[in-house]
């Protein structure tokens, strides 16, 4: 057989096989993805914020704050300290004041500090975070109402939407849900019984 003709036939066969595969629906046992709907539930909106670095950076599971968009360990060996405000002569407020500082790029808000260790969220799933948040043993003895208050009115939490600029003058990333939508979502989730989905 002519070699050119052989190549032609093999190419046609390959294209044909690809077409068959591309048009075959691959069946699996997994449920279909419902990503879009998931993002719209109050729980999903709330958790999209709470798992964002603007929250997690100050809810570490060890004794070192995180910082930056890549959540690196805080520069200068900064530590939690006994009261979550740093150590004796290196307090959070040595550098962080009650508002962002646009000269230095140091962020600030009232009560700038780490969340207590019992409220460690870093490395937890959304469900684990939600369970911890509702557990009075972890959440500082807060009722649901008090937890909602913290999540929706605490200035330090709401700083996430006014995160200012970093040391290079670049704006910090805000959480993926606008503030008013997030607040509505937290309240709606709590009003509907603060249910935590099975994941």
């Amino acid at each position: 057989m002519n070699v050119k003709l052989l190549y032609l036939l093999l190419t046609a066969l390959f294209v044909g096989i690809c077409w068959v595969f591309a048009n075959t629906e691959i069946k699996t046992d997994s449920p279909p993805l419902v990503q879009r709907e998931m993002e719209d539930t109050p729980f999903d909106k709330m958790m999209a914020v709470l798992t964002h670095k603007r929250c997690i950076n100050c809810h570490p599971s060890d004794n070192y704050p995180r910082q930056g968009e890549d959540s690196h360990v805080h520069n200068f060996g900064v530590r939690r300290g006994e009261d979550n405000h740093g150590v004796a002569a290196l307090r959070c407020e040595s550098c962080h004041q009650h508002e962002n500082n646009n000269f230095s790029g140091v962020p600030g808000a009232p009560e700038w500090s780490l969340a207590p260790k019992s409220m460690a969220w870093q490395g937890l799933t959304r469900v684990e975070i939600a369970k911890s948040m509702l557990n009075p043993e972890n959440n500082g003895g807060r009722t649901l109402e008090e937890t909602v208050h913290h999540l929706t009115e605490h200035e330090l939490v709401l700083w996430a939407w006014e995160p200012g600029i970093d040391a290079n003058g670049n704006p910090r990333e805000k959480p993926p849900v606008p503030k008013d939508e997030y607040i509505k979502a937290v309240k709606a989730w709590a009003a509907a019984g603060a249910k935590i989905p099975n994941e």
Binding site: A89, L90, R91, E93, S94, C95, Q97, H98, E99, N101, F103, S104, V106
Partner: peptide
Amino acid sequence: GEAIRSCSYAVKF
């Protein structure tokens, strides 16, 4: 009495 980094401390405080 607290050590403060004054380059990042607005004088109003």
